[in-house]
């Protein structure tokens, strides 16, 4: 069936979203920086290397356990820059607000943004506010862009993963996606889960200080760990092998996933990262991560292999194997 309209799937971060980018956007904006398809662009301006990234936040509900749309918007862009191996410095913030939005809520959101920026050590230096008629937007949308500098000698990109690299995951998966979902109308769950939204730049800083030679960094947001690993396998044309048992999922998060028929590998994270590190440096990187509160549950979940380039294979709990494909469209709650 031809898709002549934009569907929610086009924004899911999975295959359908990727085909929109590949078929429509890349040909139109064609340039070598964009076609690297990393979390942010890396630019060389008169010898200074910069990372530049942008992201829009439309989360519903805007307040959720563990955070709100404000700190999410700051942390998300900070992380995109950090995943380029850069030190995030400056952010812009654009607000699109629906007419009638409560002033008190706006104040809470802006305060969260300010606190999150302080914590991450970045400054919000420019911004814009637009108000649209009631119904033309849902409550509030936020766009943030950011820039940071890439230190000398740091070269981090999804395309640089190499066979033999160990894959380190900084902690439990699916916390953010499941928390937001549990708040949605019609699905209400009462569960001890909260979003993991956090700025990862200080953690990345420690990691790169311990080992400047980290090959790839990615925060597995929309589409989850499964989709991100596929992106890296594709970008680097290597194979990826992960072990199901090693991937941490909190009990309550696993519970919600079971109830809704979700695979936690495809659920969004907002405060986790994947690092691809040569095996001789892996233990060192892992140990500095575990010393950081945001990486205390970090663990090695698999490795990069020469076989099956472009594919992710998982060893299952019973010793079987399966392919972990990229997410297609948004996962929908199912009963079958």
């Amino acid at each position: 069936m031809k898709k002549d309209k934009i569907l929610l799937d086009h924004g899911s971060g999975g295959k359908i979203a990727n085909s929109l980018i590949a078929d429509l956007m890349l040909p139109l904006f064609d340039n070598p920086v964009l076609s690297r398809m990393d979390d942010g662009a890396t630019l060389d301006i008169n010898g200074t290397r910069l990372a530049f990234s942008t992201d829009s936040y439309v989360v519903d509900p805007i307040f959720f356990p563990g955070g709100n749309i404000g700190d999410l918007a700051v942390n998300g862009t900070v992380n995109d820059i950090a995943m380029c191996g850069a030190i995030p410095l400056y952010l812009s913030a654009g607000l699109i607000i629906e007419e009638g939005f409560p002033m008190t809520d706006l104040e809470i959101i802006l305060r969260s943004m300010s606190e999150a920026a302080k914590k991450a050590g970045v400054t919000i230096v420019t911004g814009d506010t637009k108000v649209v008629p009631k119904g033309a937007a849902d409550k509030i949308f936020i766009n943030t862009s950011g820039i940071g500098t890439i230190p000398k000698g740091i070269h981090v990109s999804g395309s640089l993963a190499r066979p033999g690299d160990q894959i380190i995951l900084s902690g439990s998966i699916a916390d953010h996606g499941v928390t937001v979902l549990a708040q949605r109308e019609g699905l209400t769950f009462d569960a001890p889960v909260e979003s993991d939204t956090a700025a990862l730049n200080h953690l990345v800083d420690r990691m790169l200080s311990a080992c400047p030679d980290i090959h790839a960094l990615r925060d597995p947001t929309r589409g989850g760990v499964g989709t991100t690993l596929n992106e890296i396998a594709n970008a680097s044309q290597t194979g990826i092998r992960i072990v199901e048992e090693k991937i941490p999922v909190k009990k309550a998060v696993a519970g919600i996933c079971e109830l809704l028929g979700f695979d936690p590998l495809y659920v969004a994270n907002e405060g986790k990262l994947l690092a691809f590190v040569e095996s001789r440096h892996a233990e060192r990187v892992l140990s500095v991560m575990q010393d950081d509160p945001l990486g205390e549950n970090a663990c090695i979940i698999g490795e990069v292999v020469e076989n099956h380039p472009g594919k992710v294979v998982m060893e299952t709990r019973i010793g079987g194997e399966r392919i972990v494909d990229m997410l297609t469209g948004e996962q929908l709650p199912r009963i079958c």
């Binding site: 009990k251 309550a252 519970g255 109830l259 199912r334 009963i335």
Partner: peptide, 26 residues
């Protein structure tokens, strides 16, 4: 064809129960 999950009954009111799966309640 049918996802069904073992759950613990936490409380009952009339014909409705609160069930618990790993701390998730519904």
């Amino acid at each position: 064809m049918c996802l069904a999950i073992p759950s613990k009954i936490v409380s009952i009111e009339g014909n409705t129960a609160i069930i618990d799966v790993d701390g998730v309640r519904r």
